[in-house]
Amino acid sequence: MDEHERTFTLKGRVALVTGSARGIGWGIARGMAQAGAHVVLNDLDPAALAPRLEELSAGGLEGSACAFDVTDEAAVAAGVGRIVAERGRIDILVNNAGIQKRKRFVDFSYAEWRAVIDTHLHGAFLVTRAALPTMSANRFGRIIMIGSVAVQSPKAEIPAYAAAKGGVTALVRALAIEVAPLGITCNAIAPGYIATEFTRVLHTDESFTAKLMERVPAGRWGRPDDLAAAAVYLACAGGEFVNGSVLTVDGGFLASG
């Protein structure tokens, strides 16, 4: 066993990544599986998870699927209960599930506003609360929230998303204090502009991309894989003393604002 496997391994860990059928969630889930974790994939739609499980097993990686709606309290409790019954525990939780609604603040209906806040913020609350008992029983847990550069530097027409991510980021700090004595850390990764289905309307727009690149020193859209190593770092032995932190992975977007 060399240093890479000793320090940066997730071997023997069980990681639940919500919203991991595609995009950032899938990039992080695959990275964690490559680091040796058993990853539990999650999405609303079980059919979306089947091909991802096949990809994992084709790569010799470990995973299983647990479909549930992160905003449905009973479904979350049942889903997390099923994972703990099957895998014995949850060591790592990545709260990634979320939706986007692009429109001006004044045009938001209350239902639309609530739907965005519900998935990102209330979903993180429900899944984390359900997973905490197994983590504290094991005196080990790594909770990773997905924040956003939109908390500090939003573009127009994503007010609910920016507010939800601001809430999630504040929750990281509040929760870090509560869970630290239990051997659990809570941190966030704040992605910049990552090319996924979530941002399709933006990254397929050449004029938006040209303008955006004036503010991204790295000179390209991010890829879901760019976030994987950061997530593994926070979850592995090497991340033990990182608590309440936001790790920004944005190609320099915030630094050049």
Binding site: G192, P217, A218, G222, R223, D226, L227, A230, F241, V242, N243, G244, S245, V246, L247, T248, V249, D250, G251, G252, L254, A255, S256
Partner: peptide, 10 residues
């Protein structure tokens, strides 16, 4: 893709 970030370890 990490650029201009400062990682807090505290």
């Amino acid at each position: 893709f990490v650029c201009g970030s400062i990682l807090d370890v505290n």
